[in-house]
Every structure is written in C-alpha cells, then in structure tokens.
C-alpha cells in the first residue's frame, strides 16, 4: 500500500474503533467512567476501568463512532478540552492506585471550534503532555487508526507507543499539508509520502516501539495476542521503580530525532 492508501485505510468507516477494541479485549469487565468534573462529559473520549486478565486497568480511547448517529454523538472522534481533562483525571486516578493505563488513539485531531478554543484546547493538551511525562504508573498507547497531531499526542506521552499496521500518525493531515505548502490539496498523496506518517516510517524514525500486524479480518486471535502483549509490557513496567519508569519515559522522548544534531 502507498502512504496515502494507508491514510485511507486508517480512516475507513468500517474499521474497528476504540469501543470495539475494548469490547474484544476486556469484554464485560469494562465499566465506563464519565466526565471531567469541571465542565462536561466529552463523548469523543471513552474511558473507564476493566480487567486485563487479573490486573485492573484504566483504559482511555478516542472514539469516532461506528455509524452516523454514533459519529455525531462522538463528534467524529474530535475531542474538546473537557475530553482531554477527563482523560487526565482518570490517569491521575490510575496513578493514585498504581494501576496501569492503556490509551487507544483514533482521531483526525483535536476539535477546532469556538467553544474548544474558549475553554483552552491548547492549555488542556499542554497539561496532559506535562502530567503524562511524570505520571507515576505505566502508560502504553496504541494508535488504532488516525493519529492526528496534538490531539493524538495528548494521549501518547507514554512508556511505549505502538501502531496498528494500518494506522497513521502525523503532525498534520496530508490534505492540510498539501494545501498549505503547495496550494493544492489534490497533492495529498505526495504529502502523505513526504510526511513519513505510516507505521513503518515511524518505527524507522524511532517514534514507535512496535507495529501490530493486522490480518484482513481482525479476528479474536489478533485481539488475544494483542492483549497478551499489552499485559506483558504493562507487567514489566509495573515491576520497575516509578522513578526509573518516568526517567525512562523522559529519555524516550528526549532522544527522538536528535541523532543528526551535534
């Protein structure tokens, strides 16, 4: 597949969304928790507690919705400040109980709206970046579809970041990039190549640790092995002293893209 075909696959409306991942891996154990305790409950973020085998887990996902009605309800997976604040509230709760956190990212970006700006979209994202860097519990992020800019990063300052084979992660959409740089959004396929936004590109750049192969029909076997992988990684990180864990998290981001400097 070309980079732009990957973008299309990541946006495919028939693709599984965060609630599907949660249902497949955690089933009935999931209890949804709502609200940021400040303004409202942003339905673009689905979050709660579940059992990862016999370990309690905080799971936070950006949810695009699976049909028109759900997509409207979920604001097409574009979170507002209250969504990021809900996520942070639940991460802090996880820290308190030393419970690991799993984030599932699937968004074209944070919502660019009047209300979102009025309520501090930039501040909400910035606070997540800061707080996640030193959160005293293991965090793992998996990009399951689109990883759109700051709105995706706000749930991806983690010990490890993984990408599903057909997901993408970028600072800007290829259409946006092509229209700003070349005044021609039809050049999006070239922009997608140039931006290096596929899982393989990001793995090569050292931005993600793992690519999860996606069979044509995402089946229970894929979810079973993914769940096992998540469990092993979080268990390993749970056993580390928290200071070592946060030190390692900082070092992870500290070294990205610095090889060519000096």
């Amino acid at each position: 597949m070309t980079a732009y075909e990957k973008v299309m696959a990541a946006r495919d409306a028939k693709k599984l969304t965060a609630v599907d991942y949660i249902a497949h891996m955690f089933g009935d154990s999931f209890i949804e928790l709502h609200g940021d305790r400040r303004f409202s409950d942003d339905r673009a973020i689905v979050a709660g507690l579940c059992m990862l085998y016999d370990t309690p887990l905080t799971v936070i996902g950006i949810e695009k919705g699976r049909n028109t009605k759900e997509r409207m309800e979920r604001n097409f997976g574009q979170a507002q400040p209250e969504g990021y604040r809900k996520a942070l509230r639940l991460m802090k709760q996880a820290e308190k109980f030393h419970r690991p956190v799993l984030c599932l990212v699937d968004t074209s970006g944070a919502y660019p709206g009047i209300g979102a700006e009025e309520r501090g979209q930039g501040q909400a994202i910035a606070e997540n970046l800061m707080e996640m860097m030193t959160l005293k519990t293991p965090i793992l992020t998996i990009l399951i579809g689109e990883g759109g800019s700051g709105g995706a990063l706000a749930l991806a300052v983690s010990d490890e970041v993984w990408m599903m084979e057909n997901s993408v992660y970028s600072v800007i959409s290829p259409e946006g990039c092509a229209s700003i740089l070349w005044k021609d959004s039809s050049k999006a396929p070239q922009a997608a190549e140039a931006l290096k936004m596929t899982a393989q590109d990001l793995f090569d750049l050292g931005v993600v640790e793992r690519i999860i192969r996606q069979p044509k029909a995402e089946d229970s076997a894929m979810f079973e092995s993914l769940k096992l992988l998540i469990s092993r990684t979080l268990e390993k990180n749970l056993s580390k002293p928290v200071d070592a864990l946060t030190e390692q998290r900082y070092a992870r981001f500290r070294k990205i893209g610095t090889a060519h400097l000096d």
């Binding site: 994202i125 970046l129 992660y169 600072v171 140039a194 290096k196 931005v207 981001f253 500290r254 990205i256």
Partner: peptide, 10 residues
C-alpha cells in the same frame, strides 16, 4: 513531520 510533533512532548 512527526518530529515536529514530538517537540511538544519533549
């Protein structure tokens, strides 16, 4: 590209 985004985290 993504390296620009990573500066926000760093």
């Amino acid at each position: 590209g993504i390296l620009s985004l990573m500066q926000m985290a760093k």
